[in-house]
């Protein structure tokens, strides 16, 4: 009964009004926001708490803070920053970067973050994901995957994109979800900072492979790029940094554009 099936599909889509999310990302280093191109060449982009408040006012659905401080000193600034953000804004936020054990996870969540983003440590020791999901629940565990294309397909890189692991992205995505990842944050290293658009094929391949929400990252330059990530890439959320930091696109305009293109967004 093809007709019935089609009707059912339309019915379900109308009933499910969960909106697609716009997530500004703040890369922080020693308490300041920075943004690089292809993971290097950092430029200073302002006070993270101020930016967070601005984004929240402009209609951001969530925020992500990625700590790229290498030092222990930088890391302790991070906890204080998380506390300040939690005191200032009332939307969900995720904190990632260098989180290596359950104690770190607890500290960040206790400081007021809603989710943690795990990357290198999860790849080094996949059991870590099971332990985290059991202690805080999958809803607080985001697995960040930095993907780079080579002749054999997409491979996972770690340590802020500086070290190849040789692991296949799709296989790792599946394993991460099976071990308790509640969401995947997938960054195309080939596109990151280029403003040439998200890697749609990468996104679609992952969407078709896993059942948890997918956050697209790396390459946003225009509103059309974001629309395509959601339609063709089937992403549930998009993450972008510089287009928001430097006010190239306002969240308000972006949401209006998406709404006009029949994407459910919170307006």
């Amino acid at each position: 009964m093809k007709f019935d099936d089609d009707c059912k599909t339309i019915f379900i889509q109308e009933k499910s009004m969960l909106t697609k999310r716009i997530i500004p990302c703040l890369d922080v280093q020693n308490g300041r926001t920075v943004k690089g191109t292809k993971f290097v060449d950092l430029r200073d982009a302002g006070d993270p708490v101020e930016l967070a408040a601005r984004y929240s006012d402009e209609g951001a659905d969530e925020l992500v803070f990625l700590d790229i401080s290498a030092s222990q000193e930088g890391r302790s600034t991070l906890l204080r920053l998380v506390e300040r953000v939690a005191e200032t804004i009332q939307i969900p936020f995720t904190v990632g970067g260098g989180i290596g054990n359950v104690k770190d996870v607890m500290r960040v969540l206790d400081a007021g973050a809603d989710k943690v983003s795990l990357n290198t440590a999860a790849l080094r020791q996949p059991d870590f994901l099971d332990v985290c999901a059991q202690s805080v629940g999958s809803q607080s565990i985001v697995v960040a995957i930095d993907a780079k294309c080579d002749t054999e397909g997409w491979k996972v890189w770690v340590k802020g994109g500086s070290e190849p692991t040789g692991r296949d992205v799709l296989a790792w995505a599946q394993e991460a979800v099976a071990r308790g990842a509640g969401e995947l944050l997938v960054t195309s290293m080939d596109r990151d900072g280029t403003k040439e658009g998200y890697d749609i094929n990468l996104l679609r391949s992952i969407s078709n492979t896993v059942s948890v929400p997918l956050i697209a990252s790396g390459g946003a330059g225009t509103k059309e790029h974001i629309l395509r990530a959601m339609t063709e890439g089937k992403a549930d959320a998009v993450l972008a940094a510089s287009i928001f930091h430097y006010r190239e696109i306002s969240i308000y305009d972006l949401k209006r554009y998406l709404h006009e293109n029949n994407i459910p967004v919170r307006v």
Binding site: I12, L18, T19, K20, R21, S138, P213, D236
Partner: peptide, 14 residues
């Protein structure tokens, strides 16, 4: 539960 929905229900809804 249901076809075409991802669980958990995570995000902004009306």
């Amino acid at each position: 539960d249901g076809p075409q929905i991802k669980v958990p229900h995570m995000g902004w809804n009306r």
